[in-house]
Design a protein around this nucleic acid. Structure first.
Lengths: 335, 335
DNA sequence: TTGTAGGCGTTATCAT
DNA sequence: ATGATAACGCCTACAA
């Protein structure tokens, strides 16, 4: 009789038999532990490569309790902001010999939570979360249960965890000041839906900045925006007695809608966009933007997470990352 | 004495004690297996939520042998092409109740391999790989060892695995035909480094298409390209007796370099770019492109992988995805 | 419907 | 320097 079976993966036991040692010695070699004579080590290594042995991390993790895996929950992996973030997170994690599980919550609270639960069931060592939903008490519980959690881009209500934020207000203020320096006195703000935390911060920033500079601060159109709705807002702003001469957008999606809306409306106002984007410099005029740095955010957040995993139990930190005003042409007066 | 300790995660055993049942009954409830009286189920569920119990998937996996996790290895997660791919992969995986591990090989063969090994050590159920390195015999071994492997965007030498490719030749041909329809008779091709498999295919496609249409096919500049090198190539092409009137680029990076290079050289040739990009329609002129569909590739590939996991053992499939010519303005003659 | 026994592959502990 | 043994938390197989 011929034994027909799927080619099973060898275990430490198989390696041990082939090398003529005990399973514990194999374990020592696999994990680079000391206390193995060089020649036995060689014999074991030979057996390992002969057999094509690969340690079963699952078993290792069950016994040791460490998984060397972190989880990242974002809104949408395909979104450039989050993919830049994810790329940086993975790079840092890899440097620390950790693997990365990723999931897209798609802005749905339940989905965000179920992904997180799945990660926790995998016993991830730590969690990086861009919190969308409003209530995150459950996240707080997890953090308390011993899994370090780092929040990205937005805080979570009632969760005292490490948090990395962008200086939204400061970014908007720098944009407003830039426009004012170019002589603009009436600026329109195309805000995204202020239910989003970042949108609300930027809206706040706009109101504060305009007020403190003595400008009108009632010129706001709420999103989400389509080119059509932007065109309508632009026309209304333009036909006022004291017309809007410059527009500030709440994020990159709104900037695109604004660009298309201007074309639709046949109006060319000055513009500063929140979020940089590829090709901003090739448009006519080249678009001045407030740039965030998602890669840096991901990098710093993962670094801190790794410190937490290494035992750092200091109080939760909140880091606010600066924005950068990338001056191109679109802030200048158009006429 | 007060017992001071980190809050440990409860196990099935703890739940069983609290509910007054055996561990096996808890297992049945947790896994939704039949054969549990409704009222016991209720008692167990209560104990689970009281204790905040979450199954240890690692232990489950060790025993059952199934990990419900797949691995995705790309070149760079932050690259829009791959992040669109990754987003789609994760969505399909999630629908099949699988988790996704992601890693960036960064075009380095060793790194690609070590990430793959790490995934395999985690005993991923399946692997999606964008193969960069030339030699992938080891990948073939893994496929043979029982882990389904699906190749993305490029084939791997000597690996008979499911493969999803883009119709690179066809895409280039459609671009050339478009330019010819606009009266162009001498087209320049800005190729990326033909060491890359996709770049070589597109270069091949260009030579075949131009030859079969009776055009000159010797007008090729090899990349990688900077705006400067593009400007130089453009000038050389322009100063010939039979000047190049239209340019075709090998991928989105080259397209950007071409756009900037044209500006540098002060030359406005007609252009068709390989790969679509955000804002292509807002440039002046709007850029005509050959669009790939990474999301569709990721989706289809993950579907097939899930079929393989479900037991489909039919011969390896190679799927060639069509490109789409997105006609905008830049293919028209410029003068 | 419910429970008992054993083992998945590894690492921790303790011995030799 | 090396090995025997137990245990990690769960699921499979089988029994009651």
């Amino acid at each position: 009789m011929t034994q027909i079976s799927a080619p099973l993966r060898p275990t430490m036991y198989d390696v041990a038999r082939r090398a003529g040692v005990s399973i514990k010695t194999v374990s020592r070699v696999v994990n680079g532990e000391p206390g193995v004579r060089p020649d036995t080590r060689v014999r074991v290594d030979a057996a390992i490569s002969d057999l094509g042995y690969l340690r079963n991390d699952g078993a290792s993790q069950l016994r040791s309790g460490r998984t060397d895996t972190i989880g990242l929950v974002v809104e949408d992996l395909a979104n450039p902001f989050y993919s830049a973030l994810a790329g940086a997170v993975e790079r840092v994690a890899r440097r620390h010999r950790h693997l990365l599980l990723t999931g897209s919550g798609e802005g749905i609270a339940d989905q965000e939570r179920s992904i997180t639960s799945a990660f926790l069931a995998r016993r991830v060592a730590g969690l990086l979360v861009v919190p969308t939903a409003s209530d995150h008490a459950w996240l707080a519980q997890e953090a308390a249960a011993g899994t370090p959690v780092v929040l990205l881009d937005r805080p979570a209500q009632g969760v005292a965890a490490d948090t990395f934020l962008t200086d939204n207000e400061g970014g908007v203020r720098s944009a407003v000041e830039h426009l004012v320096a170019h002589g603009h006195r009436h600026i329109g703000f195309l805000s995204d839906d202020p239910d989003f935390w970042t949108a609300a911060r930027r809206l706040d920033g706009f109101r504060t900045a305009t007020r403190s500079l003595g400008l009108r601060s009632d010129t706001v159109a709420m999103g989400p925006h389509s080119p059509d709705s932007v065109a309508a807002a632009l026309r209304a702003w333009h036909e006022q007695d004291d017309p809007v001469t410059a527009v500030l957008t709440g994020n990159n999606l709104v900037t695109l809608a604004a660009l298309r809306g201007m074309r639709l409306a046949g109006l060319r106002l000055s513009l500063v966009g929140f979020d940089d984007f590829e090709l901003a410099d090739l448009l006519t005029p080249a678009v001045t933007v407030v740039a965030q740095d998602p890669a840096s955010m991901g990098e710093q957040a993962t670094h801190l997470l790794m410190q937490r995993l290494a035992g750092d139990a200091s109080p939760p930190r909140t880091v606010v990352l600066p924005t950068r005003l990338v001056v191109r042409e679109s802030g200048r007066p158009t006429s």
